[in-house]
Design a protein around this nucleic acid. Sequence first.
DNA 1: ACACTGGGGTTGATGCATCAACCGCCCCGT
DNA 2: ACGGGGCGGTTGATGCATCAACCCCAGTGT
Lengths: 171, 171
Amino acid sequence: MTGTAEWLDDREQRTWQAFHDMQVLLWRRLGHHLARESGLSEPDYAVLTALAAAPGGRMRPFEISVVTDFEKSRLHHHLTRMVERGLVTREPCLDAPRGAEIALTAAGRDAIESAAPQRAEHVRRWLLQQLTKEQQDALAEISEAVLANLRAAGRPSLGGQDEEPCSPPSC
Amino acid sequence: MTGTAEWLDDREQRTWQAFHDMQVLLWRRLGHHLARESGLSEPDYAVLTALAAAPGGRMRPFEISVVTDFEKSRLHHHLTRMVERGLVTREPCLDAPRGAEIALTAAGRDAIESAAPQRAEHVRRWLLQQLTKEQQDALAEISEAVLANLRAAGRPSLGGQDEEPCSPPSC
DNA sequence: ACACTGGGGTTGATGCATCAACCGCCCCGT
DNA sequence: ACGGGGCGGTTGATGCATCAACCCCAGTGT
């Protein structure tokens, strides 16, 4: 189609395969430890982290969705489950008629404060400690490069050009 | 506890944050493209790839679970959905009483054969082309190092030592 | 004044992931 | 011959992710 080969060459294949497998296993491991030791899921952790950093432990849902990068619907459903478990409360927003406000409960703050150091330890143990300092920096640069490209191509209307969010040659 | 600081230092934090965000966005992008262009999910793709590489397009479920690294239960549920969509069939296994056999249908083979080149293109476009060859190799080495550690610690009874699958100091 | 649009939020349906328990059968030890 | 244990497979329950549609209100244009 676009003149590219059908599949990946050896170097590409090795990189992709290793990256793919590593990533799957790493998330699984981190998620399991988080759940077993803190009773929190990854999205729980993301939401609680955002709330804990906010003044008063309170945020509007759409603010949370910005920092966690969750769709509003996903976030709403997740908040509903978190309310049921007593981690947060959903209150009507005072200065906006149609708005809601999410507030951390005491249990929620306890949960995130006890989970955070464990999380740091796990990230070190399963990822960072396996790498030299040079590799850590290399991984940061790699990630930032890939991320920049993803974000650039994911926002069609931002730089002024009406670029396609799909693949460049033929979409 | 183990003498480690409570949270990550600046270098660690940068690496972790970038890696985390990159990974989330990259999977989202790849998954969306796969779904929109091929009508397949990531697990569909993994299962179909395994089957397409098997002689006759047939495998026992437990064989699939080995190569895809899916739990048997997850795999069973997923296969059920794939059967309903006509991608594979589930047949009683001839030479094993209690066993089943999964076979690729014509539709399943079409799906994977048309999806594979697109997949390769996406992996190149969103990951590999953003990296220099040195970075590709660095990412492969990083991934393999992390993966080796994950796999080693994930199998307590293999080297002879009864090692903990949890963090090393206190589990 | 009135239709339009857009943002914040909600809902329901569907598909995917995980856990726990269970069934049948084979193999092994005694 | 009989009792366990383990493996391949199945089931149901629950939580998470995604999509599409919808509601309400505010601001805007005309």
